[in-house]
Design a protein around this nucleic acid. Structure first.
Lengths: 240, 240
DNA sequence: ATTTTTTTATACAGTTTTGTTACAATGGTC
DNA sequence: GACCATTGTAACAAAACTGTATAAAAAAAT
């Protein structure tokens, strides 16, 4: 599942340069020349990351970034600002409004791609195309396959995304509501208990590989993915 | 257990900017635009920290801070003031009324988060997400795990919170009623004896690690957590 | 030594949380 | 349109957790 990147840039030449390079790097791209078009795209297909030009016809990028940060659905989308300016104040203003990084023009395509990679890895690793492999368990976003050694594990779409998220966020407890936000999407109207059901389905699928214990219940808190072998100190006294 | 931060700020743009950044930083947020709403929120769900704008519609922040400091339940909640002014006198007034820190607008989100972290660490360490480690005993709030060396210690939710509180407040006696307030939460009505039971359960769990002696009974006063070598005139001939 | 107070230990019943399964609704595909 | 996979929810079962009562033990006071 290649990350989808929205490019908001009015200069056609630069836009095409970026599109070319991002596609080269394996990203899916959509683009808009102004804020209105950008908004309509965002409403249709939530991008994973937004490349936003500082100067836009009609509305400046800072303003637009602020609007995105206000939107319920768009709040969590990483934003990288493109700016011709190098003033420190602009940098600060950009970061203050919630940009996650910025690139000054002129930029090298390699630098741009590198920064995008970095931001995605940091903020939504499950949206990057990197293979995740833990022990023998391997999830390959490119061919959308999960394997254990040479055995293939079949998962439904939701279980796949859930596993992908968990494998890229291990050793950390996530509440049901956090999982809904990150795996289902922000503020999807779904019962929290639904998470349990999908956890169950995922565990069932992993059971064949004997890896179902990696998905752990943390009572009162949520779920945790952990492949670390820890000697349980239980079963010596907790019995009834 | 992410700390819950109440943001009292009437300017929508600033409020959302703060919300976004605090959520990014892993905090839970609630917000209010004026003093009344803030009060009603506080009555329902005690926040761990309050971010309070200096200027509020109807009532100024200083006044509100003073009210909070008088309230039985709210007295101990850390307050960080947000102010557009930089005058030294205001700073003084803010700190005098009991604010624990203050941040002047415009502020960088990083600074804000850093100050919040600092205040929380100082005043309610158990609400921050930092790992607590004493000797070999390690409690990690992020993955919600307690380990002794490489042995995992399994705890129920209440024992976990109790241990977390005690590990972050060592070398000090807490009465049962204090523990009920801080671990169970105020406004909870349970027998004081209940504390004994959970202390017992926690000790039992720690016993496997041989760390149960760290939870000490102070007769007539309460309990104390102390990892300091207990070289009391206790004469451990009675060992084993 | 005896009594009183405080703490520990344990059992138990009630409650909450989580696991599991079945089912109906949805939406895509042939 | 019929088929199929997938999804979310509800309902019930199972498990874990909680608070209280009670009895035993320990410490302090008499």
């Amino acid at each position: 599942m290649a990350a989808k990147i929205l490019i908001i840039e009015d200069e056609a030449a630069i836009q095409e340069l970026i599109i070319y390079n991002l596609q080269q790097a394996g990203y899916e791209t959509v683009s808009a020349e102004n804020a209105e078009k950008a908004m309509s795209i965002i409403n249709n297909e939530l991008p994973d990351l937004i490349l936003l030009d500082w100067m836009l016809p009609g509305m400046n990028g800072i303003e637009f970034a602020r609007i995105l940060r206000h939107g319920e659905r768009t709040r969590l989308i990483p934003i990288i600002m493109l700016t011709a300016r190098t003033q420190e104040t602009d940098k600060v203003a950009g970061l203050e409004v919630g940009a996650d990084d910025y690139v000054t023009k002129p930029f090298s395509p390699r630098e741009l791609v590198a920064r995008i990679n970095a931001v995605l890895r940091r903020l939504i690793p499950e949206a990057s195309d990197e293979v995740v492999e833990i022990d023998e368990l391997r999830l390959d976003p490119v061919n959308h396959r999960v394997t254990d050694g040479n055995k293939e594990i079949e998962l439904g779409p939701t279980e796949y995304r859930l596993l992908h998220f968990m494998m890229t966020h291990t050793e950390r407890v996530y509440s049901r509501s956090q999982l809904l936000d990150r795996v289902w999407g922000d503020h999807v109207f779904v019962e929290e208990r639904t998470v349990d059901v999908h956890i169950r389905r995922l565990r069932k699928a992993l059971q064949l590989a004997g890896k179902d214990e990696w998905i752990q219940t943390v009572r009162g808190a949520g779920y945790r993915f952990s492949a670390v072998a820890t000697l349980q100190a239980k079963d010596s006294n907790t019995q009834k």
